[in-house]
Nucleic acid binder design. Structure first.
Lengths: 142, 142
DNA sequence: CTGCTATTTGCAACTCATTCGCAACTAGCT
DNA sequence: AGCTAGTTGCGAATGAGTTGCAAATAGCAG
């Protein structure tokens, strides 16, 4: 799962080329802790290569999402989409209303949901988006 | 929780007025089964009163959301927001990728999540958005 | 190593949901 | 019935994301 060879081969195997914008999107997200907007990704990518255009960032994100390499999520922080490296979906997001931090949480909850739906309700779950908004430990008063 | 007196008094109690757009938004959502976009709400509201403007629909939705009367959700169907009457959040959404249907599902899962987070992780959950995308029973082949 | 061509990019113009400014209107207290 | 702060309708503005197209390039064939 780690680093260079990965994106390259994922792209190659699906008949796509490894290009500068695609590589930059990947490496920006790799070294970012957290969830970036397309604009933030573009900013950071521009530090490495000032010629990459934001529309290519969007196109790269869409492609890498489709290939399962990155993931788009809508955390309700504002209306714009956020992106991150795709992680196993046995994770979910904790968004703190006070400090705005977004933590991941890995647990069996999503797995439970999946099997619950499959067994009892015959709904075949492909993607489970769980966003919890609230107040994180650091922001709880007292 | 039901009908006229409700919205009126919720508004009144918070110092807002009951106006035609607000009432229309409420009654459209009440009689709708499911999740409407702002545009769809505007369309239906216009059948009752052709003078209501879509920007008032947006303003009414924002206010009623803030008051906890309606709820906005982002189901990932497309990029636009969907609205529905607020129901207790012990519900979540099942979005079928094939037929596009959106079902509610009431269960204890959301409650479990809430207490799980409170007890083990001291994250105070205020709102839990759970959107499951997959294939509904009607669309499962064979 | 060099040429070739389908893929991809940069750019600028475009879309489309949502928001905003402001003058005109009105809910509902007095 | 009159007053006035809260609201609306309208049209213009915003801003994330998309698209068309000519120029650039990845990476295979020779």
């Amino acid at each position: 799962m780690s680093s260079e060879t990965d994106v390259a081969s994922v792209l190659r195997e699906s008949g796509y080329r490894l290009t500068s914008p695609r590589w930059l999107v990947w490496s920006v997200l790799r070294s970012a802790e957290g969830h970036l907007t397309a604009e933030e990704i573009a900013e950071r990518a521009n530090e490495a290569d000032p010629t990459v255009n934001i529309s290519s960032i969007y196109r790269s994100l869409a492609l890498l999402d489709q290939l399962g390499v990155v993931r788009r999520s809508n955390l309700g922080i504002d209306d714009s989409a956020r992106w991150e490296i795709a992680h196993p979906d046995e994770e979910f997001h904790l968004v703190c209303r006070v400090c705005g931090s977004v933590d991941h949480h890995r647990g069996d909850l999503v797995g439970q949901i999946r099997s619950h739906l499959g067994e009892e309700h015959t709904f075949y779950a492909e993607n489970i988006a769980l966003v919890v908004t609230g107040v994180c430990p650091r922001c709880v008063p007292e």
